[in-house]
Amino acid sequence: MEPFERLEARALPMRGANIDTDRILPSRFMQKPRADGFGRYFFHDLRFDAVGAERPDYIVNNPAHRDARILIAGENFGCGSSREQAVYAVFDYGFRAVVAPSFGDIFYANALKNGLLPVVLPGMEIEALFAACEADPSTRLAIDLQNLRVSRSGQPDLPFAIDDFNRQLLLTGQDEIAFTLGLADEISTFEELRRAHSAWL
């Protein structure tokens, strides 16, 4: 996974609560090969009309937001289906962080494991970010994972929280499996205990 330390970039303000993963990555593209990239399917049915032409009025197609690498979203972003391909789509399209008041639990976990930083900020602050990026699409945000801050010029820094271990993994780009494999003995001990007291499991 690609390490994440600090990112300074433009942001795409995507309003609307409860944006589900069926919308982020429509189910009919779920079986596509990962190697070919999922960026082209990112919000596919909102970006393109029935004949495949771009819908100019959709925010993602606004040229002013084309090079955004931070997605600002409404509450409960990524709810619904557990498909990790939704995270692939956000990541492959070019985003490295999503900032929202809340996330679907599974989307949040999936994002962490793919180097896509999910940042939770209070709704009031998200509203201010929406307003700033809509008023001036060239607004740049900086996200610092070392110091857990979101900043933009002329404004006080916004602190955010993330589990420390996940933060370390993101910073180094490692995955958890190697770490947990180091605990194989603990897992074996647990399995033996369980066999003794819950033999039916």
Partner: peptide, 18 residues
């Protein structure tokens, strides 16, 4: 509960999840 592919890989290797 539902999990993603990365968590699935973790279960495959360790039969456990953080």
């Amino acid at each position: 509960f539902g999990i993603g592919f990365s968590e699935l890989s973790h279960v495959v290797a360790t039969q456990s999840l953080w």
